[in-house]
Design a binder for these strands. Structure first.
Lengths: 208, 208
DNA sequence: GTCTATATTAGGATAGAC
DNA sequence: GTCTATCCTAATATAGAC
């Protein structure tokens, strides 16, 4: 299932990431991981203490990846609005949901401080990163001062996370897109020159 | 665990609703349901065909309840903005998440057309209900014409669903509130008289 | 309607051979 | 490091007595 060059621990972690994304922590069994990784029982318990230990490694990696993916877009150039838009419009595997956010609905993950920590850290980082960008926008007069950077950032992250919910509910990615477009229109409304035709956004990029 | 007057099927359904909310479909076993309901093995299988059958009854009821709760606020009086605000600010058991939306992350629920149907119907209804209210607001000049009722409604529902994610991630309800407040500020920005101090909302109600 | 077997597979892991 | 054997409990029922 994986390149022959990949070590057994690597294959186990990658398999766990896949299954955690697809079925969550509660729905993922050690046996399923082993089969997906093409590793034996003993092999798994040799490299990892057990399911929670392996899940922790998987979650940490997934969290790190999500952060890097977001930073790749958010760290780009362009106006504050443009960068936020680029983040919201970037390509996503919408129907699979957010591999980090979905863990939030996993009772065993939430119950464990260790397993929850990377989730909290990642979502917090994302919100703060967005808040920083929005703050820049306010400082430079791009956004109206009424815009609270931190709360707006929360709304943006929430819209994305909730967009996944809507998409999976209706089994179509367009539900996600609708929510994002709705938010972007509102955000453009806070752009200075708000009395002017609100349909003229900032400019520049779009996808990633 | 329940009133002695409650019938066994009733207790089973209510128990299933609780557990589905708390642990999801995958994380809820028939045995756990029976124990929570104070019913025996045979009792459960006498009244229901099995776990999926019981879950369907539970999900349908939860969906219906959510709809009624939302309608109680959305059907109130006041401006379009006021009703949307009342919906967003209504009291919620934030840290428990949305009993309907969370099912969306349950692989077995999503894989079953029957189990998914009530989820889809409820979220679709909510979005459409909000879209209707927003449309009224646009028609009556309360909101700028640039506001797309349907997409804005999607963004609202998504913010709520995602707000639960943020709250559970950080283990505090305030994360939900931040997202909602962020969205409300943006929504007020689409209110006519947008050039004016944006901090003066429509009026009337607030919670429910 | 409810209860008590009984059954099968999976979950989650340990022990020890190779 | 990996494999096989073994263990115990839970998951998800079915069968049949009461």
């Amino acid at each position: 299932m994986y390149s022959a060059r990949m070590s057994t621990p690597e294959r186990l972690i990658e398999s766990t990431r896949e299954l955690l994304w697809e079925r969550g922590y509660v729905g993922t069994s050690p046996k399923a991981i082993q089969q997906h990784a093409g590793a034996g029982q003993g092999s798994m318990y040799h490299h990892f203490a057990g399911k929670p230990d392996l899940a922790l490694a998987a979650i940490r990696r997934t969290a790190e990846e999500m952060r890097a993916t977001a930073e790749a877009v958010l760290g780009g150039s362009g106006s504050a609005y443009a960068r936020v838009e680029a983040y919201l419009l970037r390509e996503r595997d919408v129907l699979r949901g957010c591999p980090v956010g979905r863990l939030t609905m996993d009772p065993d993950v939430i119950a464990s401080d260790e397993l929850r920590a990377p989730v909290t850290a990642t979502l917090d980082w994302l919100r703060d990163r967005l808040a920083g960008i929005l703050q820049e926008g306010v400082d430079q007069g791009e956004f109206a001062p009424a815009l609270d950077p931190r709360e707006t950032a929360s709304a943006i992250v929430a819209t994305v996370q909730g967009g996944y919910v809507l998409a999976r509910s209706s089994a179509t990615p367009t539900a996600f897109d609708a929510a994002v477009r709705g938010l972007l229109v509102l955000l453009r409304g806070m752009t200075t020159g708000c009395g002017a035709p609100v349909d003229a956004p900032a400019a520049t990029t779009s996808s990633n």
